[in-house]
Design a protein around this nucleic acid. Structure first.
Length: 263
DNA sequence: TTCCATGTTCCGCA
DNA sequence: TTGCGGAACATGGA
């Protein structure tokens, strides 16, 4: 689930539920798997008595600013999400729980333990230290920058779109969706695209990610013309009726329309 | 039992 | 230097 659109939705969810409430207590489970660059005691010290003031996102990372200063950093791995509820109990596979007044709590849930919780004084420093490229929806990544940093690379289109050091935010699902709409085969070398194809790729990348956020990143809300809702099922291309096909690119399963995306 | 899954990272190699 | 393939991480469902 958690690629750029999902994380954006989590962010809006946190904004709508958990801002400006004093954190009364903090629980952490499986800290050795989940916490990165911060100890349980340090994190607890930073959070207790604080409230969350605002959130930001860079690629698949979410940042929440704490009232005394500093930022909580959340990465969701493959199976992470947030759940706010009025409930004394935490959901299964909870890894971090912030409790607020009354019975409210915000849980960071991560079944497969591939997500990470960190703390940073400055999101920009964190992004730099992680070696992340520009966020795929940022103003920073304009067409010119896209041409310089992305379109000139030697690797395959899908691998490059998924490379967080090049562009931050796109994973397996949305790389397929973007390439499908741009009509680019995932194994095409970006370098070989002509100017028109590059331009289309850039435009479709932005359009698809924005539209996915509008759909709350839920496949069942996405347009019928999209490929994402067809994952894991038999499906036909909405545009031409051709049967969708899968292949392995860099070890990941790619869905394509073999008629509209040719090598 | 085996394979697969929306994540990242590390290593060896071309 | 860049990029690829594979393995690893941990868990659970088909």
């Amino acid at each position: 689930m958690p690629e750029l659109p999902d994380v954006q939705v989590f962010r809006e969810y946190l904004d709508a539920t958990a801002l400006h409430k004093e954190v009364r207590s903090v629980s952490v489970s499986r800290e050795r798997d989940i916490l990165e660059g911060v100890s349980r005691s340090r994190l607890t010290d930073e959070l207790v008595g604080a409230s969350l003031l605002e959130t930001r996102r860079h690629g698949k990372y979410m940042f929440a600013r704490l009232s005394p200063g500093g930022w909580l950093v959340l990465h969701f791995g493959m199976t992470g999400y947030l759940e706010f509820a009025e409930d004394k109990d935490a959901p299964e596979h909870w890894r971090l729980v912030l409790r607020f007044g009354e019975n409210e709590r915000l849980a960071y849930v991560c079944q497969r333990l591939l997500g990470r919780v960190s703390y940073t004084d400055d999101p920009a420093d964190f992004v730099e230290a992680q070696g992340l490229g520009p966020d795929a929806l940022s103003d920073e990544l304009d067409r010119e920058r896209f041409d310089e940093d992305v379109a000139g690379r030697r690797g395959m289109a899908k691998s490059t779109l998924m490379n967080q050091a090049v562009i931050a935010g796109i994973g397996n699902i949305y790389s397929d969706e973007v390439l499908f709409h741009a009509r680019v085969h995932p194994e095409r070398k970006l370098r070989d695209l002509d100017d028109g194809e590059r331009s289309k790729l850039y435009r479709e990348m932005r359009r698809v990610l924005r539209k996915a956020i509008e759909c709350r990143a839920q496949p069942d809300r996405m347009p019928r013309s999209w490929i994402t809702p067809c994952r894991g099922k038999e499906g036909e291309c909405s545009a031409c009726g051709e049967e969708l096909k899968t292949l392995k690119v860099n070890g990941r399963t790619a869905y394509i329309c073999p008629n509209r995306q040719k090598k």
